[in-house]
Design a binder for these strands. Structure first.
Length: 361
DNA sequence: TAGTCGTGGAG
DNA sequence: TCTCCAAGACT
Protein backbone atom coordinates (compact mmCIF):
# COMPACT_ATOMS: atom_id res chain seq x y z
CA UNK A 1 0.00 0.00 0.00
CA UNK A 2 1.26 3.47 -0.73
CA UNK A 3 -0.01 6.76 0.59
CA UNK A 4 0.36 9.55 -1.92
CA UNK A 5 -1.75 12.10 -0.11
CA UNK A 6 -0.05 15.45 -0.14
CA UNK A 7 2.97 14.07 -1.96
CA UNK A 8 4.12 16.42 -4.75
CA UNK A 9 6.15 13.66 -6.37
CA UNK A 10 3.24 11.24 -6.24
CA UNK A 11 3.68 7.94 -8.06
CA UNK A 12 1.25 6.64 -10.65
CA UNK A 13 -2.36 6.26 -9.51
CA UNK A 14 -4.86 3.67 -10.70
CA UNK A 15 -7.57 6.34 -10.70
CA UNK A 16 -5.78 8.37 -13.38
CA UNK A 17 -5.46 5.32 -15.61
CA UNK A 18 -9.12 4.35 -15.07
CA UNK A 19 -10.21 7.86 -16.04
CA UNK A 20 -8.19 7.53 -19.24
CA UNK A 21 -9.69 4.07 -19.86
CA UNK A 22 -13.22 5.42 -19.51
CA UNK A 23 -12.55 7.61 -22.56
CA UNK A 24 -10.19 5.45 -24.59
CA UNK A 25 -11.07 1.79 -23.98
CA UNK A 26 -10.75 -0.24 -27.16
CA UNK A 27 -13.84 -2.05 -28.39
CA UNK A 28 -13.49 -5.84 -28.58
CA UNK A 29 -16.09 -8.56 -29.13
CA UNK A 30 -15.36 -10.19 -25.76
CA UNK A 31 -15.14 -7.00 -23.78
CA UNK A 32 -17.78 -5.30 -21.63
CA UNK A 33 -16.65 -1.69 -21.87
CA UNK A 34 -16.60 0.81 -19.01
CA UNK A 35 -19.95 2.32 -20.00
CA UNK A 36 -21.72 -1.02 -20.14
CA UNK A 37 -20.00 -2.04 -16.94
CA UNK A 38 -21.40 1.06 -15.27
CA UNK A 39 -24.85 -0.20 -16.31
CA UNK A 40 -24.22 -3.37 -14.24
CA UNK A 41 -23.52 -5.52 -17.28
CA UNK A 42 -21.15 -8.36 -16.44
CA UNK A 43 -18.84 -10.14 -18.88
CA UNK A 44 -19.47 -13.83 -19.62
CA UNK A 45 -16.71 -15.87 -17.92
CA UNK A 46 -16.69 -18.29 -20.87
CA UNK A 47 -16.00 -15.50 -23.32
CA UNK A 48 -13.40 -13.88 -21.07
CA UNK A 49 -11.60 -17.21 -20.63
CA UNK A 50 -11.74 -18.05 -24.34
CA UNK A 51 -10.43 -14.62 -25.33
CA UNK A 52 -7.64 -14.71 -22.76
CA UNK A 53 -6.42 -18.10 -23.96
CA UNK A 54 -6.53 -16.96 -27.58
CA UNK A 55 -4.67 -13.77 -26.67
CA UNK A 56 -1.73 -15.61 -25.10
CA UNK A 57 1.25 -14.41 -27.18
CA UNK A 58 -1.19 -13.41 -29.92
CA UNK A 59 -2.35 -10.02 -31.17
CA UNK A 60 -5.89 -8.70 -30.85
CA UNK A 61 -6.04 -8.36 -34.63
CA UNK A 62 -5.24 -12.05 -35.12
CA UNK A 63 -7.65 -13.21 -32.42
CA UNK A 64 -10.80 -11.26 -33.29
CA UNK A 65 -12.10 -13.37 -36.19
CA UNK A 66 -11.18 -16.64 -34.46
CA UNK A 67 -13.12 -15.52 -31.41
CA UNK A 68 -16.18 -14.73 -33.53
CA UNK A 69 -16.06 -18.11 -35.24
CA UNK A 70 -15.55 -20.04 -31.99
CA UNK A 71 -18.37 -18.31 -30.14
CA UNK A 72 -20.72 -18.64 -33.12
CA UNK A 73 -20.06 -22.36 -33.32
CA UNK A 74 -19.74 -23.04 -29.56
CA UNK A 75 -21.65 -20.33 -27.64
CA UNK A 76 -20.95 -21.72 -24.16
CA UNK A 77 -18.60 -23.99 -22.29
CA UNK A 78 -20.98 -26.98 -22.45
CA UNK A 79 -21.15 -26.75 -26.23
CA UNK A 80 -17.37 -26.55 -26.49
CA UNK A 81 -16.91 -29.46 -24.09
CA UNK A 82 -19.14 -31.58 -26.34
CA UNK A 83 -17.26 -30.71 -29.52
CA UNK A 84 -15.18 -33.24 -31.44
CA UNK A 85 -11.42 -32.81 -30.98
CA UNK A 86 -10.78 -32.50 -34.72
CA UNK A 87 -13.38 -29.77 -35.11
CA UNK A 88 -11.78 -27.64 -32.41
CA UNK A 89 -8.26 -28.19 -33.73
CA UNK A 90 -9.51 -27.28 -37.22
CA UNK A 91 -11.08 -24.03 -36.03
CA UNK A 92 -7.85 -23.17 -34.20
CA UNK A 93 -5.69 -23.86 -37.28
CA UNK A 94 -3.61 -20.83 -38.19
CA UNK A 95 -3.71 -19.26 -34.74
CA UNK A 96 -0.60 -21.10 -33.54
CA UNK A 97 0.55 -22.59 -30.24
CA UNK A 98 -1.73 -25.58 -30.69
CA UNK A 99 -1.26 -26.85 -27.15
CA UNK A 100 -3.64 -24.01 -26.29
CA UNK A 101 -6.40 -25.66 -28.32
CA UNK A 102 -5.80 -29.07 -26.76
CA UNK A 103 -5.83 -27.54 -23.28
CA UNK A 104 -8.88 -25.46 -24.18
CA UNK A 105 -10.85 -28.65 -24.73
CA UNK A 106 -9.44 -30.27 -21.60
CA UNK A 107 -10.39 -27.20 -19.61
CA UNK A 108 -13.92 -26.98 -20.99
CA UNK A 109 -14.48 -30.65 -20.23
CA UNK A 110 -13.08 -30.26 -16.72
CA UNK A 111 -15.39 -27.31 -16.06
CA UNK A 112 -18.36 -29.41 -17.13
CA UNK A 113 -17.28 -32.62 -15.42
CA UNK A 114 -15.82 -31.25 -12.19
CA UNK A 115 -17.45 -27.83 -11.71
CA UNK A 116 -21.04 -28.32 -12.87
CA UNK A 117 -20.42 -26.35 -16.03
CA UNK A 118 -19.57 -23.19 -14.08
CA UNK A 119 -16.12 -21.60 -14.13
CA UNK A 120 -14.38 -21.30 -10.75
CA UNK A 121 -14.54 -17.66 -9.63
CA UNK A 122 -11.20 -17.47 -7.84
CA UNK A 123 -7.63 -17.22 -9.04
CA UNK A 124 -6.73 -20.44 -7.22
CA UNK A 125 -9.64 -22.36 -8.67
CA UNK A 126 -8.90 -21.17 -12.19
CA UNK A 127 -5.19 -21.92 -11.80
CA UNK A 128 -5.97 -25.60 -11.32
CA UNK A 129 -7.45 -25.90 -14.82
CA UNK A 130 -5.50 -26.96 -17.95
CA UNK A 131 -4.04 -24.12 -19.98
CA UNK A 132 -4.67 -21.52 -17.27
CA UNK A 133 -1.46 -20.16 -15.80
CA UNK A 134 -0.66 -17.23 -13.51
CA UNK A 135 -1.58 -14.57 -16.05
CA UNK A 136 -4.84 -16.07 -17.33
CA UNK A 137 -6.05 -17.02 -13.85
CA UNK A 138 -5.56 -13.47 -12.60
CA UNK A 139 -7.05 -11.95 -15.75
CA UNK A 140 -10.23 -14.06 -15.66
CA UNK A 141 -10.64 -13.62 -11.90
CA UNK A 142 -10.37 -9.85 -12.15
CA UNK A 143 -12.21 -9.23 -15.42
CA UNK A 144 -15.01 -11.76 -15.07
CA UNK A 145 -15.32 -11.96 -11.27
CA UNK A 146 -14.19 -8.54 -10.09
CA UNK A 147 -11.40 -9.86 -7.89
CA UNK A 148 -8.39 -7.66 -7.18
CA UNK A 149 -5.76 -10.07 -8.50
CA UNK A 150 -2.41 -8.94 -9.86
CA UNK A 151 -2.45 -9.28 -13.63
CA UNK A 152 1.03 -9.38 -15.14
CA UNK A 153 1.47 -9.82 -18.87
CA UNK A 154 4.00 -8.40 -21.30
CA UNK A 155 2.22 -5.04 -21.34
CA UNK A 156 2.26 -4.74 -17.57
CA UNK A 157 5.93 -5.70 -17.47
CA UNK A 158 6.77 -3.00 -20.00
CA UNK A 159 4.65 -0.32 -18.32
CA UNK A 160 6.02 -1.07 -14.85
CA UNK A 161 9.61 -1.20 -16.11
CA UNK A 162 9.18 2.27 -17.58
CA UNK A 163 7.10 3.93 -14.88
CA UNK A 164 9.62 2.81 -12.26
CA UNK A 165 12.66 2.87 -14.57
CA UNK A 166 13.62 -0.73 -13.88
CA UNK A 167 16.76 -1.76 -15.80
CA UNK A 168 16.92 -5.39 -14.70
CA UNK A 169 16.54 -7.50 -17.85
CA UNK A 170 13.56 -9.82 -18.35
CA UNK A 171 12.76 -12.48 -17.39
CA UNK A 172 14.88 -11.88 -14.28
CA UNK A 173 12.93 -8.70 -13.58
CA UNK A 174 9.54 -10.41 -13.49
CA UNK A 175 9.24 -10.86 -9.69
CA UNK A 176 10.34 -7.28 -9.13
CA UNK A 177 7.85 -5.96 -11.67
CA UNK A 178 5.10 -8.11 -10.17
CA UNK A 179 5.64 -6.50 -6.76
CA UNK A 180 5.38 -3.05 -8.35
CA UNK A 181 2.24 -4.06 -10.25
CA UNK A 182 0.67 -5.43 -7.06
CA UNK A 183 1.15 -2.15 -5.24
CA UNK A 184 -0.78 -0.34 -7.99
CA UNK A 185 -3.68 -2.77 -8.37
CA UNK A 186 -6.85 -1.17 -6.96
CA UNK A 187 -9.61 -2.84 -4.96
CA UNK A 188 -12.22 -1.02 -7.06
CA UNK A 189 -12.68 -1.93 -10.72
CA UNK A 190 -9.73 -4.33 -10.79
CA UNK A 191 -10.89 -5.83 -14.09
CA UNK A 192 -11.14 -2.47 -15.80
CA UNK A 193 -7.77 -1.54 -14.34
CA UNK A 194 -6.13 -4.69 -15.73
CA UNK A 195 -7.58 -4.02 -19.16
CA UNK A 196 -6.60 -0.38 -18.90
CA UNK A 197 -2.91 -1.19 -18.34
CA UNK A 198 -3.00 -3.57 -21.28
CA UNK A 199 -4.70 -0.98 -23.51
CA UNK A 200 -2.11 1.55 -22.42
CA UNK A 201 0.69 -0.84 -23.29
CA UNK A 202 -0.85 -1.71 -26.65
CA UNK A 203 -1.67 1.83 -27.80
CA UNK A 204 0.60 4.31 -25.98
CA UNK A 205 3.33 2.60 -23.96
CA UNK A 206 4.28 0.54 -27.03
CA UNK A 207 7.55 -1.41 -27.38
CA UNK A 208 8.94 0.98 -29.97
CA UNK A 209 8.53 4.76 -29.97
CA UNK A 210 6.07 5.09 -27.08
CA UNK A 211 3.68 8.05 -27.24
CA UNK A 212 4.71 9.53 -23.90
CA UNK A 213 3.23 12.92 -24.77
CA UNK A 214 -0.34 11.66 -24.49
CA UNK A 215 0.17 9.11 -21.72
CA UNK A 216 -2.06 9.47 -18.65
CA UNK A 217 0.94 8.43 -16.53
CA UNK A 218 3.45 10.78 -18.21
CA UNK A 219 3.83 12.91 -15.06
CA UNK A 220 4.88 10.15 -12.64
CA UNK A 221 6.77 8.05 -15.24
CA UNK A 222 10.45 7.87 -14.24
CA UNK A 223 11.61 6.54 -17.61
CA UNK A 224 10.00 9.49 -19.38
CA UNK A 225 11.69 11.94 -17.02
CA UNK A 226 15.05 10.21 -17.46
CA UNK A 227 14.66 9.57 -21.18
CA UNK A 228 15.03 5.80 -20.88
CA UNK A 229 11.55 4.69 -21.97
CA UNK A 230 12.52 3.48 -25.45
CA UNK A 231 15.24 1.17 -24.09
CA UNK A 232 12.98 -0.49 -21.52
CA UNK A 233 12.25 -3.18 -20.64
CA UNK A 234 15.69 -4.70 -21.14
CA UNK A 235 15.77 -8.30 -22.31
CA UNK A 236 18.33 -11.07 -22.35
CA UNK A 237 19.79 -11.70 -25.82
CA UNK A 238 18.10 -14.51 -27.74
CA UNK A 239 19.64 -17.45 -29.50
CA UNK A 240 19.84 -17.56 -33.30
CA UNK A 241 17.42 -19.88 -35.11
CA UNK A 242 18.98 -22.88 -36.88
CA UNK A 243 17.69 -24.10 -40.25
CA UNK A 244 15.97 -27.46 -40.42
CA UNK A 245 15.08 -29.46 -43.49
CA UNK A 246 12.13 -31.71 -44.20
CA UNK A 247 10.11 -33.51 -46.85
CA UNK A 248 6.32 -33.55 -47.16
CA UNK A 249 4.37 -35.95 -49.34
CA UNK A 250 1.11 -34.69 -50.82
CA UNK A 251 -1.08 -37.37 -52.42
CA UNK A 252 -4.28 -36.68 -54.33
CA UNK A 253 -6.48 -39.64 -55.10
CA UNK A 254 -8.40 -39.83 -58.38
CA UNK A 255 -11.68 -39.04 -56.58
CA UNK A 256 -10.19 -35.88 -55.07
CA UNK A 257 -9.40 -37.30 -51.62
CA UNK A 258 -6.17 -36.22 -49.88
CA UNK A 259 -3.75 -38.35 -47.89
CA UNK A 260 -3.40 -36.79 -44.45
CA UNK A 261 -2.36 -37.82 -40.98
CA UNK A 262 -3.25 -36.63 -37.51
CA UNK A 263 -0.07 -35.57 -35.73
CA UNK A 264 0.57 -36.93 -32.22
CA UNK A 265 -0.69 -34.76 -29.36
CA UNK A 266 2.75 -34.03 -28.00
CA UNK A 267 5.27 -31.83 -29.74
CA UNK A 268 5.24 -29.46 -32.65
CA UNK A 269 1.83 -28.94 -34.29
CA UNK A 270 0.50 -31.57 -31.89
CA UNK A 271 -3.01 -32.78 -32.64
CA UNK A 272 -3.14 -31.05 -36.01
CA UNK A 273 -3.70 -32.45 -39.49
CA UNK A 274 -0.63 -32.64 -41.69
CA UNK A 275 1.00 -34.31 -44.68
CA UNK A 276 3.04 -37.44 -44.13
CA UNK A 277 6.75 -36.83 -44.38
CA UNK A 278 10.18 -36.86 -42.82
CA UNK A 279 11.41 -35.61 -39.49
CA UNK A 280 12.48 -31.98 -39.52
CA UNK A 281 16.17 -31.97 -38.72
CA UNK A 282 19.28 -29.89 -39.36
CA UNK A 283 20.81 -32.59 -41.56
CA UNK A 284 19.39 -33.73 -44.90
CA UNK A 285 16.37 -35.86 -43.99
CA UNK A 286 15.50 -39.24 -45.35
CA UNK A 287 12.00 -40.63 -45.40
CA UNK A 288 10.06 -43.32 -47.16
CA UNK A 289 7.05 -42.05 -49.12
CA UNK A 290 3.69 -43.01 -47.54
CA UNK A 291 2.80 -45.18 -50.53
CA UNK A 292 4.02 -46.41 -53.86
CA UNK A 293 3.34 -43.91 -56.61
CA UNK A 294 4.90 -41.89 -59.39
CA UNK A 295 6.41 -39.09 -57.34
CA UNK A 296 7.50 -35.71 -58.58
CA UNK A 297 9.17 -32.98 -56.57
CA UNK A 298 7.72 -29.49 -56.57
CA UNK A 299 10.36 -27.09 -57.95
CA UNK A 300 10.12 -24.84 -54.89
CA UNK A 301 10.31 -25.19 -51.13
CA UNK A 302 7.78 -24.25 -48.51
CA UNK A 303 9.62 -21.78 -46.28
CA UNK A 304 8.38 -21.32 -42.77
CA UNK A 305 9.74 -19.97 -39.51
CA UNK A 306 8.75 -21.41 -36.15
CA UNK A 307 9.57 -20.01 -32.74
CA UNK A 308 12.98 -21.64 -32.57
CA UNK A 309 13.97 -22.71 -36.09
CA UNK A 310 13.59 -21.99 -39.79
CA UNK A 311 12.16 -24.78 -41.93
CA UNK A 312 12.83 -25.52 -45.59
CA UNK A 313 10.28 -28.09 -46.61
CA UNK A 314 10.56 -29.95 -49.89
CA UNK A 315 7.22 -31.06 -51.29
CA UNK A 316 6.72 -34.25 -53.26
CA UNK A 317 3.41 -34.87 -55.02
CA UNK A 318 1.65 -37.85 -56.58
CA UNK A 319 -1.73 -38.72 -58.02
CA UNK A 320 -2.96 -42.23 -57.35
CA UNK A 321 -5.83 -44.48 -58.34
CA UNK A 322 -8.92 -45.11 -56.23
CA UNK A 323 -7.85 -48.58 -55.16
CA UNK A 324 -4.34 -47.53 -54.03
CA UNK A 325 -3.63 -48.26 -50.38
CA UNK A 326 -1.38 -45.98 -48.29
CA UNK A 327 1.16 -47.25 -45.78
CA UNK A 328 0.88 -44.10 -43.68
CA UNK A 329 -1.94 -41.65 -43.04
CA UNK A 330 -5.50 -41.96 -44.33
CA UNK A 331 -7.43 -40.51 -47.23
CA UNK A 332 -9.76 -37.67 -46.34
CA UNK A 333 -12.61 -37.25 -48.89
CA UNK A 334 -12.57 -33.97 -50.81
CA UNK A 335 -15.85 -32.92 -49.22
CA UNK A 336 -14.43 -33.28 -45.72
CA UNK A 337 -11.16 -31.49 -46.36
CA UNK A 338 -10.86 -27.80 -45.58
CA UNK A 339 -7.39 -26.35 -46.29
CA UNK A 340 -8.14 -23.89 -43.51
CA UNK A 341 -8.01 -26.81 -41.05
CA UNK A 342 -4.27 -27.09 -41.69
CA UNK A 343 -1.55 -25.34 -39.69
CA UNK A 344 0.16 -22.72 -41.79
CA UNK A 345 3.24 -24.68 -42.82
CA UNK A 346 1.04 -27.54 -44.05
CA UNK A 347 -1.15 -25.09 -45.95
CA UNK A 348 1.97 -23.66 -47.62
CA UNK A 349 2.92 -27.16 -48.73
CA UNK A 350 -0.63 -27.71 -49.96
CA UNK A 351 -0.57 -24.48 -51.97
CA UNK A 352 2.67 -25.53 -53.66
CA UNK A 353 1.25 -28.97 -54.44
CA UNK A 354 -1.95 -27.44 -55.77
CA UNK A 355 -0.08 -25.20 -58.21
CA UNK A 356 1.87 -28.22 -59.41
CA UNK A 357 -1.30 -30.24 -60.02
CA UNK A 358 -2.85 -27.25 -61.77
CA UNK A 359 0.15 -26.81 -64.08
CA UNK A 360 0.09 -30.48 -64.96
CA UNK A 361 -3.59 -30.12 -65.81
C1' DT B 1 15.27 -23.61 -15.35
C1' DA B 2 15.72 -23.08 -19.84
C1' DG B 3 13.68 -25.02 -23.86
C1' DT B 4 9.55 -25.83 -26.45
C1' DC B 5 5.75 -24.22 -28.77
C1' DG B 6 3.12 -20.53 -34.24
C1' DT B 7 1.87 -16.88 -36.65
C1' DG B 8 1.52 -12.58 -39.25
C1' DG B 9 2.18 -7.66 -38.95
C1' DA B 10 5.21 -3.74 -38.18
C1' DG B 11 9.30 -1.27 -38.85
C1' DT C 1 14.98 -9.12 -46.08
C1' DC C 2 15.05 -9.73 -41.38
C1' DT C 3 14.28 -9.00 -36.60
C1' DC C 4 11.12 -8.19 -33.22
C1' DC C 5 7.35 -9.45 -30.93
C1' DA C 6 1.79 -10.07 -29.03
C1' DA C 7 -3.10 -10.40 -23.06
C1' DG C 8 2.06 -17.34 -21.67
C1' DA C 9 1.79 -22.25 -20.35
C1' DC C 10 4.02 -26.35 -19.78
C1' DT C 11 7.86 -29.42 -18.98
Amino acid sequence: MRDDSGDRAAGPAAADLLAWYDDHARDMPWRVGPKDRAAQLRPDPYRVWLSEVMLQQTTVAAVTEYFRRFTARWPNVAALAAAADGDVMGEWAGLGYYARARNLLKCARAVVADHGGVFPDTREGLLSLPGIGPYTAAAVASIAFDRAEVVVDGNVERVMARVYDVHTPLPTAKPELTVLAAALTPEVRPGDYAQAVMDLGATICTPKSPACGICPWRAPCLARVRGTAAMLPKKLPKKPKPVRFGIAYVVRRADGAWLLERRPDKGLLGGMLGWPGSEWIEAVPEAAPPMQAEWSEVPAEALHTFTHFHLRLRVHVAEVAIEAAPEAGAFLPAGEFRPSDLPTVMRKAFDLAQSTFDNDG
